[in-house]
Amino acid sequence: MAKSFKEALESGKFVVTAEVGPPKGTDIEEMLHHIDLLKDKVDGLNVTDNQSSVMRLSSISVSHIIKEKGGEPILQMTCRDRNRLALESDLISANILGVDNVLCLTGDYITVGDHVEAMPVFDLDSVLLLKTVRLLESGKDSGGNELKGAARFCAGAIVTPEANPIEPQLLKFEKKIKAGAEFFQTQAIYDLDNFKKFMKYARQFNVKILAGIVLLVSSGMAKYMNANVPGIFVPKDLIDEMAGAEKGKALEKGIEIAGRMIKTLKDENICDGVHIMAIGKEGKVPDILAAAGLA
């Protein structure tokens, strides 16, 4: 990508980001393949940080690899595993490796993952992590000490437009903006009418919103998410559409739905871009982009 992620955000174009999940172990062949496949097709590639509290390769090392390959990594950082000292150190370390986009997250709780006996840290929260990023940019650390060389970041956060109740989430959304978030990637959205309502509210703030698109691979997955994933709601008509797909064609149907949603979001100028999460099916992102008319 010729443009940086920040430039893409500021250009006013419909921004597309996707996601790379670091593997658990040192065999990175498949991940490298995904990076090569996606890096020139999207404006930024998120790198998850021990996603779902499962120990994997670090988001910093993988972000660095993407940068070396000429892509635009978006470093995900959670507050679950590191105290403020370690987070600040990792932030400036990422910076000298050329990684200058960061998505600040609280992080899932330890016990949802595969190291259930580990200590949950949460010294900071996502709001305070954003503030810390801005502090490092001012040339100081949170101990009040001068840095030898300030940091520079394009910093973002997440928001869950389908959260129930939504009010406490919006209060936090506004705090994240106050703390310095420039962009938001949302939790998966499927109900565009609901999302439009959220965008009507969000438009009053000077931040870029990228709608979260999670690829549906079956009607069962949709039902599972409705029952088990907080802040995700797949409406019945989409579940029926998935269920009605020809045998063996559910994935194609999911790609078609994702492409159609992205096209609507873009054509109707509903938000500033999309963040595509094709969990486990990263190789299908180009097909989604093609279905959206973005390839």
Binding site: T106, D125, I158, P168, K175, P230
Partner: peptide, 20 residues
């Protein structure tokens, strides 16, 4: 709060319950 958060709920909350 399981995470001891000081600035509002995380994204894991649902229907007023905790992700844990």
């Amino acid at each position: 709060c399981a995470k001891g958060l000081l600035n509002g709920p995380c994204g894991g909350t649902n229907d007023g319950k905790c992700e844990v």
